[in-house]
Simulated scan of single mutants.
Amino acid sequence: MPSTAVLSPPAPPLGVGPLLRRWRDQRRLSQMELALEAAVSTRHLSFVETGRSKPSRDMVVRLAEHLEVPLRERNELLLAAGYAPAYAESSFEDEEMSQVRDAVKRLLAAHEPYPAVAVDRRWELLDGNAGVALITAGAAAHLLEPPVNALRLSLHPEGMAPRIANLPEWRAHILGRLRREVAATQDAQLRALLAELEGYPGGEEDEGVPKPGEIVVPLRMRHEAGELSFMSTITTFGTPLDITVAELSIEAFFPADDHTRAVLRAA
């Protein structure tokens, strides 16, 4: 008779105590340090982490704030403690998000002729301005079909990568930022994206080593008018209470030299 594989039952979900301890370990805080910051006793915090004491809703929120847990994961902590989630999650296209969409469009338009994009927590494109076409020109059509992932588009061998003059340096910057986000959020999809991007070509022995005199990691793009050089900034909403708003960011590219500025303004 053929053998039948025996599947192990799925691991039970972690309770709020072990989850809080995992976040505390990731933030490299001792129980005493967190207890002092959150104004609770070390003994009570120890009881919460070991499951000997059930934290109140306010306690979960307070500890999550001091541990800088993202809003989505704060909801998970509340659910693990037996409480209802505290933070709503809207679609970017919902009616109640109209003011946010309008603010994003105004920011993107005000940045023209320089490129700028709005992305969600997994770096999927929500909006972009007219300047984006200049840096994405020549990318394969399948990478530009929604949902467009900005990091995949940047490093994919059929995306922007062939036109990036300092690909090893830019690749190291992208991967380093993504690794930090994976560590901060423990998001499985971000971890899968990181593994995918790490498999793309473009790394070299001197990857990530800054060039002499550089103060930021530039994005240097090959262009028919000569090499273009950009530096970028990330903008987020300062007081979000909705998960979608908290996870939304705008990456804006600025010309890093006079030649780039002149080419974009002429275009």
Rank of each mutant, 00 (worst) to 15 (best):
A5G: 09
L7P: 10
P10F: 03
P10D: 13
P10E: 01
W23Y: 10
Q26T: 14
E33H: 13
E37T: 15
A39N: 13
S41M: 01
T42L: 09
T42H: 15
H44F: 03
P55H: 05
M59D: 06
V60A: 03
V61N: 02
R62A: 12
R62G: 10
E65V: 15
H66N: 10
E68L: 12
V69C: 06
V69K: 02
L71D: 08
N75H: 07
E76Q: 10
L77S: 00
G82C: 13
G82W: 12
Y83G: 03
A84S: 15
P85N: 06
P85W: 14
E89Q: 12
S91W: 05
S91T: 14
D94N: 02
E95Q: 07
A103T: 03
L108A: 05
A109L: 09
H111K: 03
H111V: 07
E112D: 05
P113S: 06
A116I: 00
A116N: 02
D120H: 09
R122P: 02
L125E: 12
L125H: 00
L126A: 06
D127V: 09
G128C: 09
A137K: 14
A139D: 02
A141L: 09
L144I: 00
P146A: 08
V148I: 11
L151V: 06
R152F: 01
L153M: 07
S154L: 02
H156M: 11
H156T: 09
P157T: 01
E158D: 14
G159C: 04
M160F: 08
A161N: 06
A161H: 04
A161Y: 11
P162D: 07
A165H: 14
N166C: 06
L167H: 05
P168M: 03
I174V: 10
G176C: 00
R180W: 04
A183S: 11
T185N: 01
A188G: 15
A188P: 15
A192I: 10
L194R: 09
A195G: 12
L197G: 00
Y200R: 07
Y200A: 08
G203S: 03
E205F: 12
G208P: 00
P212F: 12
E214K: 02
I215G: 02
I215M: 12
I215R: 08
V216W: 12
L219W: 00
H223C: 11
A225M: 10
E227L: 12
E227C: 08
L228K: 02
F230C: 10
T236V: 13
P240M: 11
D242P: 01
T244W: 07
E247F: 04
A252D: 10
F253D: 01
F254M: 05
F254C: 00
D257G: 11
D258T: 15
A262V: 15
